[in-house]
C-alpha cells in the first residue's frame, strides 16, 4: 500500500517527530523540513528503520519567506499532507522590552507558517487534493499576561487556518487545526505543568493521525482542554483582566 508523502515543517521539534512517527506508522513516506536538516540524520534513520518508509531531509527556515517558493520547488513533489509544527514560545517578560525578539516570536508562530501553508494550499487547490495540518495553540484563544506575544501570533495562525478551511472546503483540500494544550516537550522543559492537562508528544502525533483519518476540522489533543478554554473564554473581560493567569 503506497500512501502519499507527508511534509513536516519543524521536523526537529518533539511534536513534529512524534507526528512523523504516527504517520510513518500508517505507511506515509515522510519529508522532514527544518533548519540544519542534515543534523536530523539520526531521526531519519530511526523513522525509516521503524516504519519501513522512505524518509528524506529538507532544508527549511520558517523566517525566510522569500525562499519559500524555491523551497517547494526543491521537494520531490507536492506532498499529500503538510503538517506545520513550527513554533517559538519566546520569553514573554523579556520580549515585552525587546521588539526584535517579540517580532521573531510573531513571525515564527504566524507569518512564517501562514506563508508557507498558503503557498502549499494554492498548489493543493490546483491539484484538487491534499491535507493541511496547522499545529496552533490554545494560547491563541485568549490573550494572557504571561504569554500574549506567543498567544497573539497563534491566534493569527488559528484564524488563518480557519479562513483557509473555509476557502478550500469545496476544493478537496482538508484543513485541520490542532490546538494542543500543554505538551511535555523541549519548549516546556523545566515548567511545572499539571499532569492531567499535559500531553506527551506521542499523543499529539496520534491525535493528528486520527483527525486526518476522520477529516476533523479543529481538535484539542486532550478533550479536557475544550472545557478549560470554554471556561477561560467565558470570563467577562472586566473580571479576566484582574486575574493572574
Amino acid at each position: 500500500m503506497t500512501k502519499g508523502a507527508v511534509l513536516i515543517l519543524g521536523g526537529r521539534s518533539d511534536i513534529g517527530l512524534a507526528t512523523a512517527h504516527a504517520l510513518a506508522g500508517a505507511g506515509h513516506p515522510v519529508w522532514l523540513a527544518a533548519r540544519n536538516a542534515a543534523g536530523l540524520e539520526p531521526e531519519r534513520t530511526d523513522l525509516a528503520l521503524r516504519h519501513g518508509v522512505e524518509v528524506s531531509l529538507h532544508e527549511f527556515d520558517v523566517l525566510d519567506t522569500a525562499a519559500m517558493p524555491g523551497f517547494l520547488d526543491t521537494l520531490p513533489g507536492l506532498p499529500a499532507v503538510v503538517v506545520s509544527v513550527v513554533g517559538l514560545l519566546g520569553d514573554q517578560a523579556k520580549d515585552e522590552h525587546d521588539p526584535a525578539a517579540a517580532i521573531t516570536v510573531m513571525r515564527t508562530n504566524y507569518e512564517g507558517p501562514a506563508t508557507i501553508l498558503g503557498l502549499i494550499a494554492y498548489r493543493m487547490e490546483a491539484r484538487g487534493s491534499g491535507a493541511i495540518v496547522g499545529v496552533s495553540s490554545v494560547a491563541g484563544l485568549r490573550g494572557r499576561a504571561t504569554n500574549y506575544i506567543y498567544g497573539s501570533a497563534k491566534a493569527g495562525f488559528t484564524a488563518y487556518l480557519s479562513g483557509l478551511r473555509n476557502r478550500l472546503a469545496k476544493r478537496g483540500v482538508h484543513v485541520l487545526t490542532v490546538l494542543p494544550g500543554f505538551v511535555d516537550t523541549r519548549m516546556t522543559a523545566g515548567m511545572d505543568l499539571p499532569k492531567k492537562l499535559t500531553a506527551a508528544p506521542t499523543e499529539v502525533g496520534a491525535a493528528v493521525r486520527r483527525a486526518l483519518e476522520g477529516q476533523r476540522d479543529v481538535v484539542y489533543v486532550k478533550p479536557v482542554w475544550r472545557l478549560v478554554m470554554a471556561v477561560i473564554r467565558a470570563i467577562p473581560e472586566g473580571v479576566f483582566k484582574k486575574l493572574r493567569l
Partner: peptide, 11 residues
C-alpha cells in the same frame, strides 16, 4: 531521564 536517547540506529 534517558528519554532523550531513544532512536534506533541500525539493523
Amino acid at each position: 531521564d534517558m528519554g532523550g536517547f531513544r532512536r534506533m540506529i541500525a539493523f
